[in-house]
Each structure stands twice: as C-alpha cells, then as structure tokens.
C-alpha cells in the first residue's frame, strides 16, 4: 500500500473521509468542494459502479491538476448515460468521438496542447472494457508505445454493457453474458480466453500502470493523483461492478468490488515501467464463492446443480493471482 494508510482512527483511511483525519488524509470525494466532474441527473442504472468510478477518477484528476483536465470518452454506457442530448452530466471539457478511438483522441488532444504550449492541461481518456481491451486496443497500444501524455482509464465492468451485456475480452470465465449464455456443457464464458489488459499495458513499459476498484477510494485517488505526477502514457484499470450486467443488487456494488479484491480475483497493484512496485494486500481473504454467489451471472454455478469443478477452478485462478502478485501479507 503506497499511500499513507491511517489505521486506528475509527475508520482510519478506509472510509471516504472522516472528521478525525487531517484534511490531506481525507479523499477528494469527501470534500465539499469536489468538482463533481460527473454531476447530478445522469442516467446510469441504480448503483452503477461505472458512474461512481468516473466521478472518482475525474474529480481526483481535477484535484491533482488544479482543475485542468480534458477528457476523451469512448462510446459505451458512460458516454450514453452522461450525454443524451440535450443534457450532459459532465462539468469538465469532454469529447466523445467513437467507440474504439478514445486513446487516439486523447493523443490528439495531448499533441494539440503540446503544440499550444499548454502542457499544464492534462488529458484523461476513458473507456469501458470493450472500448479498451477489444476494439480500442490498437489505438491504446499506439498511445502507449508513443508514450503520449495521456492517462487512459478503463472502467471494467467485464462486458459490453451498453449494448445489452455481451461478452468482451474482459469477461471472466464462466460468467453468463448475452453471447455466452449459461447453457450447454460449459455454461457461460469459455475458459482460456480474454485479455489481462494491465499486464499488456505493463509490457509497453509505460511509466505507470495501476489497477483499482471503486471499493477503495483512497487507493484509487492516490493512483490517479500519482498518475498525474508522471508525464507520458499511463494506464489505470478500474473494476466497476455493474448491477445490470452482473445481476447483482444495486446496493452491493461496492461490496462486490471489495470482494473481487479480497478474494484475489481482481489483483490491485501498481507498476512502473513494466515492474510491479506495490500491491494492495488482501485484508481478510475470502473464498471466491462469497463473491460469485452474489451475482446472477454466476447463478448456474450454484443451481440447479452445484458446479464445484468450476468454482474450484475460479478459486485456483484467484489463488494464482495471490501468488503472482503476492497479495497476502502485511500491507
């Protein structure tokens, strides 16, 4: 854990803010003057993790830059629920072009700013997992290898949600989507497919790669702010539960994000120039079942017959993450 984690003060730095913490130790979100880059009246589903994640990220970026952020956005839920004519929920300069090009649009903005000598203004490009790992990966990889001064944020809800929950390269094994239905011998998304985008990003040896979830705000904000300290290409991959696509209770959004980390299913770490430099330790390890059983996209693992083979395999992959990133132990 790289940010100064405050323990012992009631909720320490686990909660959003807290009157017992010194102001710099509180999150940007806890402030009454936070930007609310994504403001009231957006049309995301109840309990949308992506809406939450996007506000977290952009407010933190605004905070880090003295309110000098331009955002480029890929097509997807985040774009659709924020900008249906005639209303926009954004309060930062924001541009949506198409589905697969957010990274390149970001590169263009950054280039323009450099040309104008306005390098104090920073660029955030953002997309869903589909817009990142699938259709957007070409532009993204280009942005990375050119080391353009763009922070790219992937809001990973693990499927193409905006088009009605179809499989993406980020959909986890066994998960039901509209194109990987829970039927047949191996219900849900097949095993052995999909991409680990953070590690792909690391392979570009860009200055900074990090993962985060909407459950740990201090960590998330720290990573955004840290990303803003670097020049060049940066990538943050944020797990954002989607009640609609995951078949979860809207109230469980943060809980699921937390469980994803605490099970080891979603490793939370930071890497600089391709090397992992910090991992968020699991606070109290829980079996993957605790996570899976809250989501209807995994319902077929429990009913009509319990699929211990699949649950075990998911547990194995979580355990592999734990080994690979050293997720257990003292923070």
């Amino acid at each position: 854990m790289a940010y100064r984690q405050v323990k012992f003060y009631q909720t320490g730095s686990f909660a959003v803010g807290g009157r017992l913490l010194d102001t710099p130790e509180r999150t940007v979100q806890s402030g009454m003057s936070r930007t609310n880059a994504l403001t009231l009246g957006h049309r995301a589903c109840q309990g949308c993790g992506e809406a939450l994640g996007a506000r977290y990220v952009l407010d933190a970026a605004m905070h880090a830059t003295g309110n000098k952020v331009i955002a480029a956005n890929a097509t997807g839920c985040l774009e659709v629920f924020t900008t249906p004519y005639p209303e926009t929920s954004w309060q930062v300069p924001w541009l949506h072009s198409v589905f697969g090009n957010a990274a390149a649009v970001g590169s263009g903005i950054a280039a323009a700013l450099r040309a104008k000598g306005q390098t104090d203004i920073r660029v955030v490009a953002q997309a869903g997992d589909g817009g990142t790992v699938d259709i957007g990966i070409g532009c993204l990889s280009g942005m990375f290898e050119r080391n353009d001064d763009v922070l790219f944020v992937c809001y990973d809800n693990e499927a193409y949600m905006n088009t009605g929950v179809q499989r993406s390269g980020s959909t986890p094994p066994a998960a039901r989507t509209a194109t990987t239905e829970a039927v047949g011998e191996e219900p849900g998304n097949p095993w052995g497919q999909g991409k680990d985008m953070p590690r792909i990003a690391m392979a570009h040896e860009i200055p900074y790669v990090a993962t985060a979830t909407v459950a740990e705000l201090h960590d998330l904000e720290y990573k955004v702010e840290k990303a803003m300290e670097y020049r060049g290409a940066r990538y943050i991959h944020i797990l954002v539960p989607c009640p609609l696509g995951w078949g979860s209770e809207p109230a469980d959004t943060i809980r699921l994000a937390r469980l994803a980390k605490e099970t080891g299913i979603f490793p939370v770490f930071e890497a600089e120039k391709g090397e992992v430099v910090a991992t968020s330790k699991i606070r109290s390890k829980v079996p993957v079942e605790d996570y899976l059983s809250l989501q209807r996209r995994y319902a077929h693992l429990f009913k009509p017959a319990r699929r211990d083979d699949v649950i075990d395999a998911i547990q194995d992959s979580a355990d592999r993450n734990i080994r690979r990133f050293g997720l257990l132990g003292e923070a």
């Binding site: 331009i70 480029a72 541009l95 072009s97 198409v98 090009n101 390149a104 649009v105 970001g106 590169s107 263009g108 903005i109 950054a110 280039a111 323009a112 700013l113 040309a115 104008k116 532009c139």
Partner: peptide
C-alpha cells in the same frame, strides 16, 4: 482520431 482530438482542442 487523433486529429479529432487535436482539432477539438
């Protein structure tokens, strides 16, 4: 795409 970003900037 980059030109779109640049032009909009």
């Amino acid at each position: 795409s980059a030109l779109i970003g640049a032009s909009a900037t």
